[in-house]
């Protein structure tokens, strides 16, 4: 039952691990930026007066939130391929991530928008602000500020979930781990190293979001305090 750990034999692979980690971060950043845009648009769509648009956005959010990410990946990746659209793997992986994180973002942003008191919007209307102005200054900015902690938490989770894209052979950190372990036959050590890398990246990302939050919301108020 004695097992000799051999991390030394993994040393030669560190450039690969680094490449994989950078790719994971790259995919996460792209997915979060586009996911935020989709999420905000979708949340606005659900509040809007057009019934069909609200239903459509609601269906999108519910479908994504109630099916596994892995199934979404297979559906989009193999589905598009069978329809004749062959995307490069990186693009396909990022596309599934955007599709996934967009719905979660929409739900979080919607929850933030719901905390805006109707009186605020009425007041803005009374002051003669245009609809885009109301959405940007009165609804969106305060609500984004309020849900910023949940949003950044969701983005960190997305970084972790991106490991699943290794199943369509995306060469991100987990994909790299799979090829390293099949070359070095040191599967246990490989996945321990990768677990530590992911943990470090998650901490780093959390810290980066914290700093970013302080920069863009200088007047950070505590959650739940009246605006």
């Amino acid at each position: 039952m004695k097992y000799n750990f051999d991390f030394a034999s993994l040393q030669e692979y560190w450039p690969e691990f680094l490449r994989g980690a950078l790719m994971t971060l790259e995919m996460t950043v792209i997915a979060c930026v586009f996911g935020l845009v989709i999420g905000v648009l979708c949340a606005i769509g659900r509040r809007g007066k057009r019934k069909w648009l609200a239903t459509l956005c609601g269906a999108y959010v519910e479908i994504v939130r109630n099916t596994p990410y892995l199934i979404q990946i297979f559906f989009i990746f193999f589905g598009l391929a069978s329809a004749g659209l062959k995307l490069p793997i990186f693009a396909a992986a990022v596309l599934t991530m955007v599709f996934n994180v967009g719905a979660y973002t929409a739900e979080i942003v919607r929850a933030g928008m719901d905390t805006i008191h109707p009186g605020q919007i009425e007041a803005a209307e009374a002051l003669g602000l245009s609809t885009p102005q109301i959405y940007w200054d009165v609804i969106l900015r305060p609500s984004l500020e309020r849900v910023y902690p949940s949003l950044s938490g969701q983005f960190v989770l997305m970084m972790l979930s991106s490991s699943v894209t290794s199943q369509i052979s995306a060469e991100e950190l987990t994909g790299v781990a799979n090829s390293v372990q099949s070359e070095s036959f040191r599967s246990f050590e490989t996945f321990i190293v990768v677990a530590v890398l992911y943990f470090g990246m998650a901490m780093m990302l959390k810290f980066a979001f914290h700093l970013f939050g302080q920069a863009i919301f200088p007047r950070r108020r505590r959650l739940g305090t009246p605006l």
């Binding site: 490991s163 987990t174 781990a177 246990f188 321990i192």
Partner: peptide, 15 residues
């Protein structure tokens, strides 16, 4: 919470 479930799964499975 800072590691993907997939990696936990691999660590348990291979470990």
């Amino acid at each position: 919470q800072g590691t993907p479930l997939l990696i936990v799964l691999f660590v348990v499975y291979f470990g």
